[in-house]
Design a binder for these strands. Structure first.
Length: 427
RNA sequence: GGGGGAAUGUCCCGAGCGGCAAAGGGGGCGGACUGUAAAUCCGCUGGCGUACGCCUUCGUAGGUUCGAGUCCUACUUCCCCCA
């Protein structure tokens, strides 16, 4: 169903390019013919570099992780490069402002946390097509300054570097670009060269904003080692309404279970716009294409079935089948059968905590509001319900009849609140 | 080196005669309508307080003033013109 991403007259013969093409991951490639041939010649080794600027990735980062997964599915070897070294510098691509510099301790902690996500989506090990993870700090930090300049500096002209979008954007927007950041693209190019030497890695993938950085690496490998390498980028994914994936003002859709529960992750996918269901099924699940075509053809309210499949499959990839089924069951109970279910994210309060608690405070405690003021405004707007009853008085104490109740904000955000009653156990 | 301009609500863009919690848009959240969708219309969109209230915000640091985003000085970054 997706439009042909390949140039006229080119039909991929490798499993790898065919898989990426038919599932919608391809935006730009430095040499389709060459890459296709290389992918057919043996185990294709490719890498993607990841920053370690936060303790979790969000849905916006998921796309390129999925590219590595597809590579593995097609018999290739994925390399995950954790940017322990490059994160010390900061990628200026797509950023208006210089990033705050992270400490080495922050970076190490982030890497530890981020690794867990990769372990869920890729198979690591020592076999030929097992994924490996490396930290570019291992080589980047060992260079002396003059040594680095003499080795790589001659291969980059300022004239050319100034033409790259990552630099141009900053300059056009009249924002400062420090010399530190200016060096980022050299470091990324050196990464590619290093991986080529160490692992025979001939392909770097990434988001479309990484094109310039990736091509620099290809060039460097050609100039220094006279070898061929390839660049392949994925399109920028937005919803049909034009919003960027995975980031809202309220907060990113995190991939770590501690930062966003499997239930809420499932809900994120369940609320996909109609027009995006097929595309997202191809990109973010392992469903066979013919099955996706069937789901995609559903019309009207029936697309809800497709959205549930999308939600469950996408959640299963990240959090496991069991967690996905639990989330699906909780949603079914809460939305379709109108009953409470332990599968909902749960807030447990003691009777003492509840005593005198205002509706405002309860909203904040449930994570429905960022501040008391926010909670009051939400309640004034009619956003808060307890067991389906709309709450109108923000300052009134919480009125609960039983020991558990359903909290709801808006149409679709639900929580379960359970009251522990230690007081009543000692009459 | 000289001259002229610019930085605004920690999501973005953007108005702002010395009284401003600061116009307007986008985005987000909520309400109505629906199918937990989209589109449309409406409301909200600094923190604390039940409240007439208090506190914190306009590149940074000082100053003038009863009072400064708005005036002055220095600094930082950017743009334009001259050299």
């Amino acid at each position: 169903m997706s439009s042909n991403p390949f140039p006229p007259g080119f039909t991929p013969r490798s499993d790898f390019l065919r898989l990426l093409g038919e599932r919608g991951y391809i935006h730009q490639c430095s040499d389709f013919e060459g890459l296709d041939a290389a992918a057919r010649a043996g185990v294709l080794t490719a890498y993607i570099g990841f920053d370690a600027t936060a303790p979790s990735y969000h849905v916006g980062n998921l796309l390129v992780i999925m590219m590595l997964r597809r590579l593995q599915q097609a018999g290739g070897k994925p390399i995950v490069v954790m940017g322990g070294g490059t994160t010390k510098v900061g990628d200026p691509s797509g950023k208006d402002e210089t990033r705050r510099l992270l400490t080495e301790g922050d970076i190490a902690a982030n890497i530890a946390s981020l690794s867990e996500t990769f372990a869920k989506l890729l198979r690591f090990g020592d076999a030929p097509t097992d994924a490996v993870m490396v930290d570019n700090d291992a080589w980047l930090s060992s260079f002396g300054y003059v040594e680095f300049l003499r080795a790589f500096g001659p291969h980059f002209t300022i004239n050319r570097m100034l033409t790259f979008d990552s630099v141009k954007l900053r300059l056009d927007r009249e924002q400062p670009l420090t010399f530190l950041e200016f060096n980022y693209m050299l470091m990324q190019a050196v990464d590619f060269l290093e991986l080529n030497r160490r692992f025979g890695c001939i392909l770097q993938m990434g988001g479309s904003d990484q094109w310039g950085n990736i091509v620099n690496g290809v060039e460097l490998i050609r100039r220094v080692d006279q070898k061929g390498a390839f660049a392949l980028t994925a399109p920028l994914i937005a919803t049909s309404s034009g919003a960027k994936m995975g980031k809202t003002a309220a907060g990113a859709v995190w991939l770590n279970a501690e930062m966003r529960t499997p239930y809420d992750y499932w809900q994120f996918w369940r609320n996909t716009e109609d027009a995006d269901v097929g595309r997202f099924l191809r990109l973010y699940t392992d469903m066979p294409l013919d099955e996706i075509a069937r789901l995609e053809a559903l019309a009207g309210a029936e697309v809800n079935e497709a959205k549930k499949v999308l939600a469950t499959e996408a959640t299963a990839l990240l959090h496991g089948r069991e967690a996905a089924e639990t989330a699906a069951a909780a949603a079914r109970a809460a939305f379709e059968e109108g009953r409470l279910s332990g599968g909902l994210p749960t807030l447990t309060l003691s009777a003492a905590q509840l005593n005198g608690m205002s509706n405002t405070a309860l909203m904040v405690a449930a994570g429905f509001a960022n501040s008391n003021g926010d909670a009051r405004r939400q309640i004034a707007g009619g956003a808060f319900r307890i067991d389906g009853v709309k709450i109108s008085d923000a300052n009134a104490p919480v009125a609960l009849t039983g020991i558990e109740a359903e909290l709801r904000k808006g149409n679709s955000r639900k929580r379960l609140v359970i009251i522990d009653e230690p007081e009543s156990k000692a009459p």
